[in-house]
Write a protein that binds this DNA or RNA. Sequence first.
DNA 1: TGTTGATCTAGACCCAACTCTAGGACTTAG
DNA 2: CTAAGTCCTAGAGTTGGGTCTAGATCAACA
Lengths: 174, 174
Amino acid sequence: MDLSIGEVAQRSGLSVHALRFYEREGLFANPVRRLANGRRIYHEDDLEWLAICTKLRSSGMSLTMIRQYIELVRQGTGNEHERLELLRRHQNHVEAQIRELQGTLDVMRHKVQIYEDHLARGEADRLWNPSHPDTEQGSEDVDRLCEVAPSRATSHSPQITGPLHVPAGERRRR
Amino acid sequence: MDLSIGEVAQRSGLSVHALRFYEREGLFANPVRRLANGRRIYHEDDLEWLAICTKLRSSGMSLTMIRQYIELVRQGTGNEHERLELLRRHQNHVEAQIRELQGTLDVMRHKVQIYEDHLARGEADRLWNPSHPDTEQGSEDVDRLCEVAPSRATSHSPQITGPLHVPAGERRRR
DNA sequence: TGTTGATCTAGACCCAACTCTAGGACTTAG
DNA sequence: CTAAGTCCTAGAGTTGGGTCTAGATCAACA
């Protein structure tokens, strides 16, 4: 019933290092108990929770946000609205990610299509070639990877996302 | 027609720092030219390419992979199959991401639903509460965030993804 | 008895993708 | 003439999410 850190590592897919790290970061619902000799003992429950953590992480939830959630749980009843809030925020986030990826995907499918067509017709040389900019201007199907996605797809093209990474301080002042 | 680095920053959403960084990293199709005084001059074309880069980045393509692509383009015609390969790889990657996110989303929607129901019925105290593990065992709708997604959704539950981050060296030897 | 093998702690290190700083130059407006 | 604004380079610093190392303990096995 009780599990060693090694077993949990195997079954969760996280490394033992990561498990100790998660503990330091306060990501477990209840404190990890120890054997007399100081070794950690885990439970099936912990495995379940870790599986969820991994899922949340893989959908882009930060450890900070996961910690917030588990802290609310630890506090006990009374903050269910806050928990819900948090879940909803992440849900929206995931939905936005999917929309954005769908948009990218449409563009990529279109490009792959163009490449396939050109290669099939033996016209590969009409694809993007930076050294012959004039040829490129004239041709229609030139590969700049930047044509607008085909019209059937533009319906859900993602909003412009701005910088992928925001600076640490107050905010960049350009 | 020509653009300063500041203009490009504004219009691309990248910082001037990032633009210089991208250049150092070899992410531009053709070398960025300079004015007599050493200042960079960019082109509309560069903006287009940067827009694509941002899209690719936001869909998880690494700068390394983007560089590989643009290097192929720089080499000129003859490697179109390789370019296609690269595009297809990323396309698969994006598709996998979407499937995974959809799976997470199903679970989250289910959880949000449970929270909403409970709150509406004033039964919030039956949700996950670590200090009363017995209550929790007995109740059905307990919030462990870990119930399997509702059956209508399990169809496309994502494969287990393993660690989110693989170590730098050959591979972990546990 | 010695040698694995698993674990422990504290803390150093890693990586991607930037951001930020320092010190200097050039341009334009007032 | 000076002040502001944009730009330059080289290189240091940051963040998140871990990984990895060193040195020590402990249990079991041959």
